[in-house]
C-alpha cells in the first residue's frame, strides 16, 4: 500500500497573534507542523509499521518547510516532496487541492491521509476538494484506520451522533481527527539520520502544471482582513459560605445585570 500524506506549516497558535492594519504581525511568530497533519503522519507511519505501507509526504511552501519535513522523516516517513514555487502566493484550499491532485497523479498511491483541517485557517476543505478532484471516496474526521485487504480499509469517523464505521475501496482520501492517535516525538536517532535524507523539491512546472492550472493565480477565495479576536473578560470570584455567595450573586444579577 502506498500512502501519500500532506503536511502544512502553520503559525504556532500557542503564541499571541497580533493584528495590525488587518494583517498578522510576523515579528516574533514561529511556525510549526499543523497538529492534525501530525496526526496524519503518525497514522501513516503506523500503517507502515503494522501493514508494510510505503509512506510519502508532500508539503507545499518554501524552503522553511524543510525542518518540519525532516522531523517527519525522523517520525518514520520514507520519502518527501516539497512543492516550492514562487508563483504561488496565498493559495486557497482549491489551489492546494489542485497541486495535491498533480502530486497524486504522479505517484501510484492507494491512500491519501490529510489532517482534517489546518490550525491557521481552520477551513477543513483541502482533503475533501482533493477527493472530489480525483473522484475518489473520502471520509472525514477519521479516528481509526484498519487495513482489511489490499483494496479495502475500514475507518471509523466521529459523526454527529456517534462513531460511524465505514468500509471504503481504495484508492481513497481520509482526513483525520486529532483523536486518532498521539503523535510520537521524532526519534533522536531519526533526527540525526534525517539530516542526510534527500527531499525532492519541485516547482509546479516540474510537477507538470502551472499556477494558473491549479487555480493559484486567481484564488476562488481570499482573506480580506484579519481581526483581533475578542478576549474573554476575567470572571468574578465570590468568597464566603453558600448563603453569602448567593446573596452577592442575587444582588449583582438584580442590580448590575438587571435580569429581574
Amino acid at each position: 500500500m502506498k500512502i501519500l500524506t500532506t503536511v502544512k506549516r502553520v503559525v504556532d497558535v500557542e503564541l499571541n497573534i497580533h493584528i495590525e492594519n488587518g494583517a498578522i504581525v510576523e515579528d516574533g511568530l514561529q511556525y510549526v507542523i499543523n497538529a492534525w497533519d501530525e496526526n496524519g503522519v503518525e497514522a501513516a507511519v503506523q500503517l507502515k509499521e503494522n501493514n508494510n505501507a510505503q509512506t510519502t509526504l508532500v508539503s507545499i511552501g518554501e524552503q522553511d518547510n524543510t525542518d518540519m519535513i525532516r522531523k517527519c522523516y525522523a517520525m518514520g516517513i520514507e520519502d518527501a516532496i516539497l512543492i516550492d514555487d514562487p508563483a504561488l502566493v496565498a493559495p486557497d484550499a482549491f489551489a492546494y487541492a489542485g497541486i495535491l491532485q498533480k502530486v497524486y497523479e504522479k505517484g501510484d498511491y492507494d491512500l491519501v491521509i490529510t489532517g482534517k483541517q489546518a490550525q491557521d485557517t481552520d477551513s477543513g476543505q483541502t482533503g475533501i476538494i482533493l477527493a472530489e478532484y480525483l473522484q475518489l471516496p473520502c471520509v472525514s474526521n477519521v479516528i481509526s484506520i484498519e487495513v482489511m485487504d489490499e483494496a479495502h480499509i475500514r475507518v471509523s469517523r466521529l459523526g454527529d451522533s456517534g462513531t460511524e464505521i465505514v468500509e471504503i475501496t481504495l484508492p481513497a482520501v481520509v482526513t483525520v481527527s486529532d483523536s486518532i492517535n498521539e503523535p510520537r516525538l521524532p526519534a533522536m536517532r531519526g533526527i540525526m539520520m534525517a539530516k542526510k535524507k534527500k527531499i525532492q523539491v519541485m516547482d509546479l512546472a516540474a510537477l507538470g502544471t502551472s499556477v494558473e492550472a491549479v487555480g493559484g493565480a486567481a484564488p476562488k477565495s481570499e482573506v480580506a482582513e484579519f481581526m483581533k479576536s475578542k478576549t474573554r473578560q476575567a470572571g468574578q470570584k465570590f468568597e464566603g459560605d453558600a448563603a453569602q455567595i448567593t446573596a452577592q450573586v442575587v444582588e449583582l444579577l438584580a442590580n448590575e445585570a438587571k435580569v429581574f
Binding site: 504556532d12 500557542e14 503564541l15 499571541n16 516574533g28 514561529q30 510549526v32
Partner: peptide, 13 residues
Amino acid sequence: ERNGNPWGIGYDK
C-alpha cells in the same frame, strides 16, 4: 522544543 518551556505555553508569554 517549540516554546522553550516544558509546559509548551507560547514563548512570547
